[in-house]
């Protein structure tokens, strides 16, 4: 890196990133519904903190939605439909359209990370890997949420995680994970494709 010559001037401008309208819709609905899920979820958290129980540290009011436990639950169990169904139709869409093979982390990305020399290609591979990896995390949030919402009908979900507390912890961990992801994902997108790439997924 230190002694490598300055990169040659590009002969042509990079292609304008293209996102399908469906990808943009998914991205918007995902952001908004996650924001509602997290703020209402923290409101529910405060009724009996996962860490510390009654008397445990609580999240401050500006991060909460719903005003009190019942209000937080109302928002949480409304926004869950948008969050979960958005994931569902998008999952079907990427399967049917085969975007799964083209637009998500693939073997060539892993190869670029292991043996590649091009730092831009490597950054791109990290970017793809990151937004691919968040999908199972979002699905895990749905699964653990369902287990806590209907622990009698879906008792096998509680059993899967061993205990009620473990289920609560895993469900809660999705909050810091998603927030950290959002930050790193934004920075990676900026690095890989600049504002042009960021704009392309929104507008």
């Amino acid at each position: 890196m230190t002694s490598s010559p300055a990169p040659a001037k590009r002969s042509k401008a990079p292609p304008i990133p293209h996102q399908t309208i469906l990808a943009k819709v998914f991205h918007w609905v995902n952001i908004i519904s996650l924001l509602l899920m997290i703020t209402s979820g923290l409101q529910i958290y405060n009724a009996n903190p996962v860490f510390g129980g009654r008397g445990g540290w609580q999240f401050p009011t500006p991060f909460l939605l719903g005003g009190w436990l019942a209000g937080g639950r109302h928002w949480h169990f409304a926004a869950m439909w948008f969050f979960a169904l958005n994931l569902l139709w998008y999952g079907l869409y990427i399967l049917i359209s085969r975007r799964w093979q083209r637009r998500f982390a693939s073997a060539s990305d892993l190869k670029a990370l292991q043996t590649g020399r091009n730092p831009k290609r490597k950054a791109y591979a990290w970017h793809r890997l990151l937004y691919t990896a968040v999908i199972p995390i979002l699905l895990l949030a749905v699964l653990t949420g369902l287990g806590m919402y209907k622990p009698a009908q879906f008792h096998w979900i509680v059993d899967l995680f061993g205990s009620w507390q473990a289920l609560r912890v895993v469900h809660f961990i999705s909050v810091p994970t998603v927030l950290l992801f959002s930050l790193v994902h934004s920075l990676m997108a900026l690095r890989v494709g600049g504002l042009r790439l960021i704009n392309s997924i929104f507008w």
Partner: peptide, 21 residues
């Protein structure tokens, strides 16, 4: 700082949630 429409949200979605339950 208030319940931010949680009552209205509930009146729309609780019937759906109840029928699923």
């Amino acid at each position: 700082g208030t319940s931010l429409y949680s009552d209205q949200v509930n009146s729309v979605f609780e019937p759906l949630n109840q029928s699923v339950e």
